[in-house]
Write a protein that binds this DNA or RNA. Structure first.
Length: 571
RNA sequence: CGGGGCGUAGCGCAGCCUGGUAGCGCACCGGUUUCGGGAACCGGGAGUCGAAGGUUCAAAUCCUUUCGCCCCGACCA
């Protein structure tokens, strides 16, 4: 490709709209442009990267025997009514009516469509298991799109769906997907981790997320340095010390006046006790009724775990009014003692405490030396708090650490969540009807590219991992008006092109500085610099973008070297 | 949806408080000189000041409404 004929509108200055590195650099490098909030155009250079990514994904999907198909982006409401998600999905689902007034949506995911297809086409267990995938544009009307490609509304996604006879089939496919994902993200040059995840709206029995580690990540990832345990914050837990006996003798319960003292920090400072001697009482409103939740003062409630525990779809902290009605006191002074007509669930850590402090359900009053059993009853203990850095690993007990990650892929075992309500059945070996046992597996293409930029850049621009790089080599003739320079540059360009290496020749009549800056910004892994002075001594220069190492070499050497380099990669 | 901020040339911004000829840098076009890390000089093109309404002799500037965008939060595959 000739730079002079190729649209790469690089920007010298940072666009004001961009906050995160990947967004900023991809705009500056002329790879993407925004059309509306969360909706982006991929310019030619950006599309080349996307296509590289897609190729990797296709190769790895084919390798595990998944078959590609393409489903419509627009989907009729009937299918979503069948699965029950039309009402469940909320505003994120972009809905509209056609000219006849029929309801449609733009697909944010395709479980319904694929399940419908399979129930029509698959009759027998002999046709199972089968895995299908597509690479397709999705739309989710995010409340707040942000971070450029990392969280757009319209985005390209690889979504695969497996149909098996039973759970064993599903687990097997799941495992091969896990391997395929590992290979895909490795090939993209990413540092990542597969973590246990909550199943969210898609639902199902278990799930892994592939997280790319980056400070700008949106999700907190809990992981163990000593064993393979890793989970996202929503799901993570730590070892529960439930064997511990309470050593302290139960003291007499007392009321203390705590005028205007509400928060854990205030109470612990006011009474001169550590916050882990306090118990927070949170009153939640849920679609399955109100719940009082007890966590230790220095802990935070994990609302996702809580939701799962009590099988609620909706869960939010109660407002002032509801709190007064339930506890009899204002917010900030809630406590479990004397609560009636409300379920009380407590975190395991609360169960380890004795003689702790709680709110008195009365303005300006707290209770000290409170004990479970004697003073109130807990309906259920569970792990319902957020893990803190340093907590013991649930598997091996070593301290856990918390990092930030970008979710680039997710694996779900769906089970019969869709096949049952949609009545997607086949005949099994015994001649009985059975529901498909399903799994689904997504990769955010654009997001993975953005994540790759987050992990691979320096102050001058992007440093593409070779498999994703839009061009492998950039030939930079420093003076296009010098015949010798151009003949040599063209020779190198042609030779590399001839062996299938992606080469960009910067044949613009620009000053060297401009070309160097653009080459660094775009992030081509290797630069071949052809300058008059070196050429007179028989040399060109070879630069490694990542290390910035510069070598003087002859034309023959550089061609051989690059040919060898990319031949080896291909094998 | 709550809080904060911003819409002025392709991009980055100033001007607005205190109303009176729309400006700067980069980019773009032409010319001269340059030519190894975003060149210098000369000349030039480019704006319904987000939109609508109001106040005023006069509005980018003041008032009202509205649309869009960004950030934080709530939410989230």
């Amino acid at each position: 490709m000739r730079y002079s004929r190729f649209l790469i509108p690089t920007l010298r200055e940072d666009p004001g709209e961009a906050e995160v590195v990947s967004h900023r650099l991809m705009l500056r490098a002329g790879m993407t442009r925004k059309l509306a909030a969360g909706i982006y155009t991929y310019l030619p250079l950006g599309l080349r990267i996307m296509n590289k990514m897609i190729r990797i994904v296709r190769e790895e999907m084919e390798r595990i025997g998944a078959q590609e198909l393409l489903m419509p982006a627009v989907q009729p409401d009937e299918l979503w009514q069948e699965s029950g998600r039309w009402d469940l999905y909320g505003k994120e689902l972009l809905r509209f009516k056609d000219r006849h007034g029929r309801e449609f949506c733009i697909g944010p995911t395709h479980e319904e469509v694929i399940t419908d297809l399979m129930r029509r086409e698959i009759r027998s267990y002999r046709q199972l298991p089968i895995t299908l995938y597509q690479i397709q544009t999705k739309f989710r009307d995010e409340i707040r799109p942000r971070f450029g490609l990392m969280r757009g509304r319209e985005f390209l996604m690889k979504d695969a769906y497996s149909f098996g006879r039973d759970e064993e089939d599903a687990r097997e496919t799941y495992k091969s997907m896990h391997d395929a994902y590992t290979r895909i993200f490795n090939r993209c040059g990413l540092k990542f981790r597969a973590v246990e995840a909550d199943t969210g709206l898609i639902g199902g029995t278990f799930s892994h997320e592939f997280m790319v580690m980056a400070d700008t990540g949106e999700e907190a990832v809990v992981s163990c340095g000593s064993c393979e345990y890793a989970a996202n914050m929503e799901r993570a837990e730590s070892k529960v010390n439930d064997g511990g006996t309470k050593s302290e003798k139960e003291e007499e319960r007392n009321r203390v006046d705590t005028p205007g003292v509400k928060s854990v920090e205030e109470v612990s400072a006011f009474l001169g006790v550590r916050s882990d001697k306090l118990v927070k009482t949170l009153i939640y409103k849920t679609d399955t009724g109100p719940v009082a939740v007890l966590v230790r003062g220095d802990h935070e409630a994990n609302e996702v775990r809580l939701k799962n525990l009590i099988s609620a779809n909706e869960l939010m902290l109660s407002d002032q009014e509801a709190i007064e009605k339930i506890t009899g006191g204002p917010s900030g002074f809630s406590g479990p003692v004397g609560l009636r007509g409300i379920r009380i669930v407590a975190d395991h850590a609360v169960g380890q405490l004795s003689n702790f402090i709680v709110g008195g359900n009365e303005k300006d009053v707290h209770l000290v030396n409170v004990n479970i059993g004697r003073d109130f009853k807990v309906d259920q203990f569970s792990y319902i708090r957020k893990v803190l850095a340093g907590d013991p690993c649930p598997k091996c007990g070593s301290p856990l650490s918390i990092d930030r990650g970008i979710e680039v892929g997710q694996l779900f075992i769906l089970g019969k969540k869709y096949s049952e309500p949609m009545s997607a059945k086949f005949l099994n070996k015994k001649g009985e009807e059975a529901f498909f046992f399903m799994g689904c597996y997504g990769i955010g293409i654009g997001r993975t590219i953005a994540a790759a930029v987050e992990q691979n850049h320096d102050k001058d621009g992007i440093v593409w991992p070779i498999p994703l790089a839009p061009f492998h080599v950039q030939v930079i003739p420093l003076n296009v008006n010098n015949e010798k320079v151009m003949i040599t540059s063209e020779l190198i360009y042609g030779s590399l092109l001839g062996v299938g290496i992606d080469v960009l020749i910067d044949d613009r009549d620009e000053r060297p500085g401009v070309k160097f800056k653009d080459a660094d910004l775009i992030g081509t892994p290797y630069h071949v610099i052809v300058g008059e002075k070196n050429l007179n001594e028989g040399f060109v220069e070879f630069k490694d973008r990542r290390t910035r190492e510069l070598k003087k070499v002859t034309v023959e050497e550089i061609i051989d070297h690059l040919k060898g380099l990319f031949n080896r990669r291909r094998r």
